[in-house]
Simulated scan of single mutants.
Amino acid sequence: MKAAVLKEFGRPLAVEDVADPVPGTGEAVVDVVAAPVLHYSDEVLSGARRYLLDLPAIPGVGAVGRVRSVGPDATKLRPGDWVYCDPTVRSRDDAVTPDIVLQGWSARGEGGLRLQRHFRDGGWAEQAMIPTENAIPLGDIDPADAGRWAMLSLCLVPYGGFLDGGLQPGETVVVSGATGAYGGAAVAVAVAMGAGRVVAPGRNREALADLERRFGNRVRTVVLTGNEDEDRAAMQAAAAGPVDLVLDILPPSASSAAARAAAMTVREFGRVVLMGGVGMLGGDDLALPYPWLMRNSITVRGRWMCPRDAVPKMIALMRSGLLDLAQFQVDEFALAAADEAVQHAAKAGGRFRLTVLRP
Rank of each mutant, 00 (worst) to 15 (best):
D54G: 10
T265I: 04
E230V: 06
H344V: 01
A3Q: 11
F269S: 07
A188K: 04
M305S: 12
N227C: 07
R214F: 02
F9I: 10
L317R: 02
E16W: 06
I249L: 05
G139A: 09
E126V: 01
C306R: 02
G302E: 07
P169Q: 13
P312A: 10
P98T: 12
V33G: 05
A3F: 08
G111I: 00
A238I: 08
D309P: 02
F333S: 08
I100F: 03
P201D: 14
E230L: 11
A263S: 11
N296Q: 13
R353L: 09
A107I: 00
A239P: 01
G321Q: 10
G165I: 01
A348R: 15
E212Y: 00
C306V: 06
K7P: 01
A254L: 02
Q236R: 15
D94S: 13
A257L: 08
A237Q: 13
S106K: 07
M264V: 03
P169A: 12
A237W: 05
A240P: 01
N227P: 05
M235Q: 11
I141T: 14
D229W: 02
E340K: 14
P359H: 07
G139L: 10
V173Y: 11
R49V: 08
T299Q: 06
V356F: 03
A239L: 11
I298M: 05
D73W: 00
V96W: 06
F352L: 10
M305T: 12
P158T: 02
P312M: 11
A48P: 00
Q103I: 04
F162G: 07
A195Q: 13
R271N: 05
G283K: 03
D93S: 14
T88Q: 06
G65M: 12
K76W: 02
T265N: 08
P79K: 07
A128Y: 00
G111F: 00
L286A: 07
P289E: 15
D140I: 05
L288I: 15
V174F: 06
R148W: 00
F328N: 14
P79D: 09
A209P: 00
L52G: 11
